[in-house]
Design a protein around this nucleic acid. Structure first.
Lengths: 182, 182
DNA sequence: CCATTATCTTTTACGAGTAAAACACCTGCT
DNA sequence: AGCAGGTGTTTTACTCGTAAAAGATAATGG
């Protein structure tokens, strides 16, 4: 009872397939009456995200950045604008408090600068420094190249198909979750 | 310049599609020479995972459990065995330290019990209490029903196709990342 | 048989995110 | 003008995860 790698596993996952398939098999053996369809989608999305986050951040780590930090810098770079902390929070899907903390660190490292608004003194405007922009522009190609190799196990047509299906799902989720504030 | 919901956005995402598509369009405008293909897959996986985690845990929260806690209980339930902390860590893809902390809380709540090993006094064996098993068996159908509605925006055939593609990707990732310990 | 090394688990110190409150400032109404 | 309420940002208190070290025990090989 051993998986493809050397680690011993406890369950009925010897018979091939990914780890999520093994988990689903176990659940079906215990609760045959349940429809495990959703687990095969959601479980795999979560597991892929977890594995990708471990893997994909290698080029970032090399530059001393975390993914959330890079997302923040990237938002400034790809919009080409100065953004306020609130806008950065929306662009990076994180809380305002988290953005505040990240800005503090990125400012200390000289990657972004802040400037107060003349009219409305509550708001700040954040922009990339030259150093910050150079860093982003240097990392991005490496990051994309790395992601390309991570996905290289999948045919190009499958990658596109996957992107399309995920896009459709995402569209539903973003619509549903923004309206259904239960 | 407004997204489907009411929140103002800063970039060029008015033209429809999901938020990841909008981000990719911005990057392409700034760096037309880069192949943004991988972002459309990986970005969407990450974003889907983030949205699903907010949404999907509603039935769990209702039962006072976090997803990692439920994963731990679920591992015990679906294997039907007593598991050691180490095995639980592997089954739930988390660190040993995290498992230790969760076990402490779940034990205090009377959902799991521990028992020492007679032969090897380093290891502990953890099992569900009756309360714990009842809780898991009560939550699981709700959880699956909820996940079904979350995915209901996608045709059944598309869901299956998505599950298949994700399974193929996951198989690659799990193989690659377990061998390439860079 | 004892020392070294490996294994299993917990502890410690710390970093990072969150929700809620606090601040600071604007805006519109009377 | 002045205040009530709204908005943008930061602070506070807390939770949770992690890495690394510690602790305890087992296995191996001179």
């Amino acid at each position: 009872m051993t998986a493809a790698n050397g680690r011993r596993t406890v369950g009925a996952d010897a018979a091939g397939g990914d780890t999520v398939a093994a988990v689903v098999r176990q659940w079906r053996a215990v609760h045959p009456e349940l429809d495990t369809g959703p687990m095969e989608v959601i479980g795999r999305i979560n597991r892929c995200a977890a594995l990708l986050q471990q893997a994909e951040d290698a080029p970032l780590r090399h530059a001393g950045l975390t993914r959330p930090e890079f997302d923040l810098l990237g938002a400034l770079r790809r919009t080409g604008l100065e953004l306020t902390p609130g806008e950065l929070a929306r662009e990076t899907f994180s809380s305002g408090a988290a953005v505040t903390k990240r800005l503090k660190q990125l400012t200390e490292r000289g990657l972004v600068e802040r400037r107060g608004d003349a009219r409305d003194r509550r708001v700040a405007h954040v922009r990339l420094t030259d150093t910050g922009r150079t860093l982003v522009d240097g990392i991005l190609p490496e990051q994309l190249a790395y992601e390309t190799t991570v996905l290289s196990g999948l045919e190009t047509t499958d990658q596109r198909e996957l992107a399309t299906l995920l896009g459709a799902l995402l569209l539903q989720l973003e619509g549903r979750l923004n309206t259904t504030r239960s």
